[in-house]
Design a binder for these strands. Sequence first.
DNA 1: TCATTTTATAAGTATATGCTTATATATGCA
DNA 2: TGCATATATAAGCATATACTTATAAAATGA
Lengths: 96, 96
Amino acid sequence: MLGDKTRLAIVKSVFEQECCVCEFVAIFDMSQPAVSQHLRKLKDHGIVKERRSGQWIYYSMNTDYPYYAFVQQLVNHLPSQREGMSNLQQDSCCEN
Amino acid sequence: MLGDKTRLAIVKSVFEQECCVCEFVAIFDMSQPAVSQHLRKLKDHGIVKERRSGQWIYYSMNTDYPYYAFVQQLVNHLPSQREGMSNLQQDSCCEN
DNA sequence: TCATTTTATAAGTATATGCTTATATATGCA
DNA sequence: TGCATATATAAGCATATACTTATAAAATGA
């Protein structure tokens, strides 16, 4: 599941902060359906959870995930995604 | 690289002890070429190293691998392979 | 209610990946 | 030297995986 580069980056991101779908589309420069499909898989595995707010859907880490601590250790070895996140502010769709 | 189940199990094994190719073939119940190909990839990535002793080739963890500590953390979360290893003794080809 | 926006889903496709089969290489031993 | 054993490599194939395109669903706002 986390062998996929994009999904691993998504998980790293949601570990740092709740993210909107549109932010992933912008950051990873991927099509919206491609992003949605990765999010779906992560959600189905119980790794992330979603929260709807109006038109937007935000994803965050599911702290109840059985391997939460393990994933945390894992992503601690990856470079932060914050920079990329904060760089797009205006560009992306949601208010974040 | 470590997203593959077999390769992850191989790495777990060589972390615990140096292993012969034939042992992997026996434990994972896989064809010899399939095992060899996984070992080749792990070796090419510098994760494991090989040592020839007569007809047999033994693989072990490469302690110089840059992400050695990370991989160690990772495999610590996996169940030990020792049991499977010790259960085959006579069956496999090498003297181990 | 209708158009727009955001996201999800479904279906099709291209590529990556891991396997099998066949063969080569290397070592040991008679 | 010739054969057996252990392993590596190459080529082909089947399947898994991640993408694209098209469409549906849900919410917003005029």
